[in-house]
Design a protein around this nucleic acid. Structure first.
Length: 211
DNA sequence: AACATCAGCAACCGCGTGCAA
DNA sequence: TTTGCACGCGGTTGCTGATGT
C-alpha cells in the first residue's frame, strides 16, 4: 500500500539521543542511503553496526542501520502478500508463543519480525479476537489459549494476559492441565528442531479442529 | 472541496542479554 | 566480579494515504 521509502518524516521527534553532540539523521531512509549501506555491508559484512554507521558515511546510528538492513535491504526479504498459509501459521504460532515476533518470524522464511508484528497489530489481532468471540458463543468456556508459559514471558503478552484472565484465581499451571505434556520445553525453544515445531503445530491444528 | 478519522507501516526507543576486557 | 559495549527484541510513535462525513 505504502511505498517502501517514504517521502517525508519528522526528523526532530521526541526523545532520542539528543545529548549527543552530533545530530544524527532520523526518519525515512533515502535510496542513496540504502545504496551506501548495502554497498558497505556487501564489502565488510553485517557486523559491528556502530562501525558500519560511521564508516559507511551514513549520518545514522548503528541501530537504525541494523533495522534498515534486517527489515528491507538484506537479501531474500519477502515483502507484502502474506499468503493464507503464512497467515494461518502466524495465528497458530502466536497462539502458542504470544508476542514473540522474532521467534514467529523465524518460522516464516523471508519475513521479518517487524512485518509480522505490524501485520498482527493491524489485521490479525482483530481477526483473532473475533474468532475467539465466535468460538465463545458456541462454547462459553473453551480450554484454549496459549498452552505454555515461557521462561522469559513478554510483559503484557496477549497470550499471557489471556491466560491470567481465564485462570480465575487459579495457581495451577497449564502444563499441569496436560495439554503440552508431550513437549520438552528446552527442545521446543530450540527452533532448529524442525520436527518438534511441526509436531507442536500439528497438535495445535488438532485443538483448533476440536474447537 | 474540505476536514476528520482510520488503517497500514516504517522507524524509533527502552530494556534485557551476552560477551569480552 | 564488575563494567561497558554491541546486539536483539518488543512496544510505541507518528507519518502517509484511504475512506468517510
Amino acid at each position: 500500500m505504502v511505498a517502501p521509502t517514504r517521502s517525508k518524516k519528522s526528523i526532530n521527534g521526541h526523545g532520542g539521543s539528543s545529548s549527543s553532540k552530533r545530530v544524527m539523521n532520523r526518519g525515512a531512509w533515502t535510496a542513496e542511503e540504502d545504496m551506501k549501506l548495502s554497498g558497505y555491508i556487501e564489502i565488510h559484512g553485517a557486523k559491528r553496526w556502530k562501525t558500519i554507521a560511521t564508516k559507511s558515511g551514513l549520518n545514522r546510528c548503528g541501530k537504525s542501520c541494523r533495522l534498515r538492513w534486517l527489515n528491507y535491504l538484506r537479501p531474500n526479504i519477502k515483502r507484502g502478500n502474506i499468503s493464507d498459509e503464512e497467515e494461518d501459521l502466524i495465528l497458530r504460532l502466536h497462539r502458542l508463543l504470544g508476542n514473540r515476533w522474532s521467534l514467529i518470524a523465524g518460522r516464516l522464511p523471508g519475513r521479518t519480525d517487524n512485518e509480522i508484528k505490524n501485520y498482527w497489530n493491524s489485521y490479525l489481532s482483530k481477526k483473532a479476537i473475533s474468532g475467539r468471540e465466535k468460538s465463545r458463543e458456541v462454547e462459553p468456556a473453551p480450554p484454549q489459549g496459549p498452552a505454555i508459559s515461557l521462561h522469559k514471558a513478554p510483559e503484557n503478552s496477549p497470550a499471557l494476559v489471556e491466560e491470567e484472565e481465564e485462570e480465575e484465581g487459579g495457581s495451577g499451571s497449564k502444563l499441569e492441565d496436560g495439554y503440552l505434556d508431550p513437549f520438552d520445553m528446552e527442545e521446543f525453544f530450540n527452533f532448529s528442531n524442525e520436527a518438534t515445531i511441526s509436531k507442536f503445530l500439528e497438535l495445535d491444528g488438532d485443538l483448533l479442529m476440536a474447537d
